[in-house]
């Protein structure tokens, strides 16, 4: 294991994870006001109508696929009696459907964000960074799914990338597994941990706010006026405003 591998596949990913966790705690605590989806449906609706649902539902499917593919060990599916061939067919087809949804969605959304002036105007620099990283992750995630596994000879990422990734959580990441994986998987994985590091500082935080509570709460809410500590004058209660909000 070279020093580079150590940095790239162990230290930086762990740092990214740490930033992810601490960053979220920090932002939750200090920037409730900036915690929003920052929807731009008001500014543009026709492209969003197709782009946003495709992208989001496609992403849900992709995340479910990753959980299956990476977090569930190969030994488990083998124990269930699912042969490797069947598994790979299933994951490729499912993955392809999800990938198509995500890619169409992302193309629509990226087109919209870069060319519709009203939408462009609302995008902060850190949003651009997150969007570029997302695009890298998605494109480089889809090429192997469709290209290598579906059309090509196939590559068993469950014996390489997945081992390293699972190992991160078990505190014993298998560096050689990822270091010997094809470059495309390496970049995909790199962009993925990079996203984790910027996640808490971007609009991506809205992912944690899917309002499931709405399904069973009463319709009309009442609150009483409670005494609250005054905020520092001139801050409107915000102790931090730069990130995620450009203004």
């Amino acid at each position: 294991m070279s020093a580079f591998d150590l940095w790239w596949w162990i230290i930086l990913p762990y740092l990214a994870l740490a930033v992810f966790v601490v960053g979220h705690i920090w932002r939750w605590r200090y920037d409730q006001f900036g915690w929003t989806s920052r929807s731009t449906q008001l500014q543009e609706r026709l492209l969003l109508k197709w782009g946003a649902p495709l992208f989001h539902y496609g992403t849900f499917a992709a995340i479910a696929g990753h959980v299956l593919g990476i977090l569930v060990p190969e030994s488990f599916t083998r124990w269930l009696g699912i042969p490797e061939e069947t598994y790979r067919m299933f994951s490729s087809i499912g993955g392809t459907v999800a990938a198509l949804a995500v890619i169409i969605g992302v193309v629509l959304l990226a087109f919209r964000r870069t060319t519709v002036p009203r939408v462009r105007a609302t995008t902060s620099p850190v949003d651009w960074l997150a969007l570029v990283l997302l695009a890298v992750v998605i494109v480089l995630g889809i090429i192997p799914t469709m290209g290598i596994n579906l059309l090509g000879s196939g590559y068993d990422y469950r014996e390489s990338v997945a081992l390293w990734f699972r190992g991160l959580f078990a505190a014993s990441p298998d560096v050689s597994a990822i270091a010997n994986a094809p470059l495309i998987y390496q970049i995909h994985a790199t962009a993925a941990w990079a996203i984790l590091a910027v996640w808490p500082f971007t609009r991506l935080v809205h992912a944690w706010s899917i309002p499931l509570w709405y399904l069973w709460r009463p319709y009309v809410l009442y609150r009483s006026r409670v005494p609250a500590h005054p905020t520092e004058p001139g801050t409107g209660g915000r102790r931090w405003r730069r990130i995620g909000v450009r203004y």
Binding site: S209, Y214, L221
Partner: peptide
């Protein structure tokens, strides 16, 4: 998100911007 509420004391309907998630 449950960010909007009616005030018990005077019935004024308000948005809690800290809990609004922009849905």
């Amino acid at each position: 998100s449950g960010a909007m509420y009616k005030r018990e004391e005077d019935g004024i309907v308000l948005v809690d911007q800290d809990r609004c998630r922009g849905w």
